[in-house]
């Protein structure tokens, strides 16, 4: 922990950038990937249900 304290005071911009901004961007990227994936899956499911309905 003391090592981290010294490191963050010696490299404040790296600490701020990677600790906060990179993590926030990663969270945004994961959320975007999740909503895009959800859309693809939902479209696929609805198409399959529609095709199954047409076959009946």
């Amino acid at each position: 922990m003391i090592g981290l304290d010294i490191w963050m005071r010696e490299n404040p911009l790296t600490y701020v950038w990677f600790g906060s901004y990179a993590v926030a961007m990663l969270i945004f990227a994961v959320e975007i990937a999740m909503v895009v994936h959800k859309r693809k899956i939902t479209l696929q499911q609805v198409r399959l249900m529609r095709e199954a309905g047409e076959e009946e």
Partner: peptide
């Protein structure tokens, strides 16, 4: 709801990172 939760998480995370120094 999920987007709000993620913003709350980012707020807490970045707050912790700011609080330490």
């Amino acid at each position: 709801a999920p987007t709000g939760a993620l913003f709350a998480l980012i707020s807490l995370w970045t707050g912790a990172l700011w609080g330490k120094p």
